[in-house]
Amino acid sequence: MTSAILEKVYTIKTLNDLSKSGFNVFSDNYKFDNEIDNPDAILLRSFNMHDGDFGDALKAIARAGAGVNNIPVDKFTEKGVVVFNTPGANANAVKELVLTTLMASSRNLFAGIEWTKTLTADGEKVPKLVEAGKKQFVGKEIKGKTLGVIGLGAVGALVANDALNLDMNVIGFDPFMSVDTAWNLSSNVQRAITLEELYANCDFITVHVPFTDETGGMFNEDIFKIMKPGVHILNFSRGELVNEKDIEVALKEGKVGKYITDFPNENILNMENVIPIPHLGASTKESEENCAIMAARQIKDFLETGNIKNSVNFPRIALPYSGKRRLTVFHKNVPNMVGQITLVLSEFNLNIADMVNRSRGEYAYTMVDIEDNVNGDVIPSLEEKVNQIPGIVILRII
Rank of each mutant, 00 (worst) to 15 (best):
G123N: 14
V82R: 09
D174F: 12
R297Y: 01
V73C: 09
S3V: 14
I398F: 15
D74V: 10
D51P: 01
V368A: 02
G67Q: 06
K59Q: 14
A62R: 05
G67Y: 03
N333S: 07
T284D: 10
L195M: 15
L185D: 10
T116G: 07
E253C: 00
F173V: 12
N267R: 13
P390M: 02
F54H: 11
V170M: 04
D213C: 07
I247L: 05
D246N: 13
M367G: 01
D222N: 15
T366S: 11
P175S: 08
W183I: 13
R358W: 02
E253L: 04
N351A: 06
V83H: 06
I223W: 02
A104Q: 13
I293L: 03
V94M: 10
R63Q: 02
S106W: 08
G144E: 02
N267F: 12
K135M: 06
F173L: 11
K285T: 08
A89H: 11
V256R: 00
L18W: 01
M103K: 09
K225F: 01
D222P: 00
R360A: 07
M294Q: 10
E347M: 07
I379V: 15
E197L: 03
L119Y: 03
F23L: 08
I397C: 04
I277S: 03
D372E: 06
I352C: 01
V274Y: 00
D377K: 15
D51E: 14
L6R: 15
A292L: 02
F26S: 01
A192P: 12
T118Q: 09
T194Q: 12
K13C: 07
G112P: 08
V149E: 06
Y199I: 08
E304N: 12
T215E: 14
E221P: 01
N16L: 02
K13W: 10
L280D: 05
L58Q: 12
V386E: 01
I205K: 09
V338S: 13
E197I: 10
E248C: 04
F204N: 04
N69F: 11
I113P: 00
N169R: 14
K252P: 00
F110R: 00
T366E: 03
L251K: 03
L166I: 08
V338C: 10
I113K: 08
N90F: 06
Q190D: 10
G112L: 09
N375F: 09
C202G: 06
Y321E: 10
L303F: 13
M294G: 00
K245R: 14
L43G: 01
L102Y: 09
A41Y: 09
V374T: 13
N273P: 00
L382G: 10
F110K: 01
N270C: 00
H50G: 05
F54Q: 03
Y30N: 02
L6P: 05
N92L: 14
D56W: 03
T261D: 05
I5M: 09
N90Q: 05
D40Q: 06
G156H: 04
T366A: 07
I171Y: 02
V374H: 13
A182K: 15
G67R: 10
G123L: 14
